[in-house]
Amino acid sequence: MKLKREEFTRDEILTQLDKLEANKAFSRSKINLRLLKFLVESTLNGDDIKEVTIGTEFFGVNYDPIKSDNKVRVYIYHLRKKLEEYYSSAASPDEIIFNITKGQYRVKFERYQKPKAEKSSKNKVLLSAGGVFLFGILLLIGIQEKAGDFWITLMQNELPTTVIFGDYFTIEGPIQTGRKGIVRDYEINSEEDLQTFIDQNPDKEAMADFQASRHHYFNWGAPYCSKTITQFWSQYEYPFDIIQVSEWSISQIENENLVYFGQSKSMGVLKKILKENFPQYSFKSQRLNRRDRITNEDVLYNDYVTKEGKIIDYTVVAKIEMPAGNELRFFLSDQDCGIISTLNYFTNSDSVAAFYERYQLSKEQNFLALFKVTGWKRKSYDMEFILLDKK
C-alpha cells in the first residue's frame, strides 16, 4: 500500500470517518468506532493524547497505567487490527488512511494511492496482495480455531478481554497479640458485609476498632491460573488484561469479555450476573445449591476436607454470552484445586473437543458445568464430571 502525505481539511477527515462508520466491519464493532472517533477528534483538536488521557476521558475511570491497567493498549491493538482489515479489503483508491503508529495514539492522515504499473502487472500485484491477505486471515482463523469451541467465540468477537481474579477481603484492627493487624472472616467479603455485621452486632464493642483493610490477598490458584492462561493465549497472540475483582468496575461490563477465576464468595456483582443466567443455583462459602427446575428438589454440594487431608471441591465452569455481545467465562472453586484442574481441562484442545461432542454442545451455546475435584494440599489429582445445565 503506497501512502502519500498531504494536508486534509477537517470536513474531509470527518467524511472519511462517516464512511468507516457505514462499513459493516465497524458497524458491528461500536466500541472500536467510538474509540476511533475519540482519537480522530483529539488529533484534530491538537490534544496531547496519552494512555492515561484515553483511560480517564474515554473510559471514564481513574486510570493508572503503572499500577496494572493495560486496557487502553488492548483496545488500541484491536482498533489497529480492525483498520488493517478494512484497508486491506474494503478501501477504495484515493481515500484517507487513518494510521495509528504502534506505541502512539495520535492519528496520522494519509492518502492511499494505487501503485503505478502496467495493467497486467497491476492485476498480478492486486491478486497477489489479496491472496496474501486472504491467506493471512484464513491462517489466523485456523490457528484460533485450535483454541477450542469453549474460547473461540470470545476470541473472535473483536472486544478486548479482561481476566479477573477473586481476591480476599480483609479486616484491619486489633488481633490476639494485642497489636494491630489483618484478619479474615470467611463470611465478610466486602465493606458492605463488614458494616452489616457491625450494625447487627452492636454488643461487640471491639468491632468499632475494625475497618476495611487496603491489603487483599490471593490463594495459590491465582498465580497458577495466571501462568496457564498466559501460556495458552500466547500461542494465538491474543492480548488480554489482568485485574483483581476489588478493582474491577461494573461500568465496563458491556465493553469487554471477562474471564473470572476464584471463589464464589469473592465474585462481587459478577455473582448476580451468573445467578441471572442460571437462577437454579445459589452460591455460598464452600457450598452450592441446585434446584431442579422440574421437580423443584434441592441438591446441596458441600466442599469438605477428609481426616487424611484430602480435599473434595465442587467446581463450576460457566460460559455466558451477554446481550451486548461480549462473553463471560467463570471458573469457581473455593479450594484452588478446582480452578487449576478445570482450567487445564478447558485449555486442552482434545479434552474440549471431547467435552463438546459428548454433551452435544455448539460453540455458541451457554452452559454451566459442575465438576467434583479431589486433591491433596490444594493440588488436584482427580476430576469427575457431575452435571451440565444448558441455556
Rank of each mutant, 00 (worst) to 15 (best):
E7Q: 11
F8Q: 04
L14Q: 10
L14R: 12
D18L: 15
E21K: 14
K24W: 11
A25F: 13
S27H: 03
S29C: 09
N32G: 11
N32L: 11
L36E: 07
E41V: 10
N70D: 09
Y77S: 09
H78M: 13
L79R: 07
L83A: 10
E84R: 07
E95F: 00
I96H: 01
T101S: 06
Y105H: 02
V107F: 06
V107N: 00
V107R: 00
A117E: 14
K119H: 05
N123I: 14
W151H: 13
N157F: 03
E172C: 00
E172Y: 15
G173R: 09
P174E: 14
P174Q: 04
Q176L: 15
V183F: 00
E187C: 06
S190W: 01
E191G: 13
E192Y: 03
T196H: 08
N201S: 10
N201K: 06
P223T: 05
Y224P: 08
K227E: 14
S234V: 06
F240P: 01
I253Q: 14
Q263T: 08
S264E: 02
K265V: 10
K272C: 08
K272W: 05
I273W: 10
P279M: 12
Y281P: 03
F283W: 03
S285M: 11
Y301Q: 15
D303W: 13
K307F: 13
V316W: 09
K319A: 09
R329Y: 09
Q335P: 00
V352Y: 06
N366H: 10
F367R: 03
K372I: 09
W376Y: 14
F385L: 00
L387D: 06
L388K: 00
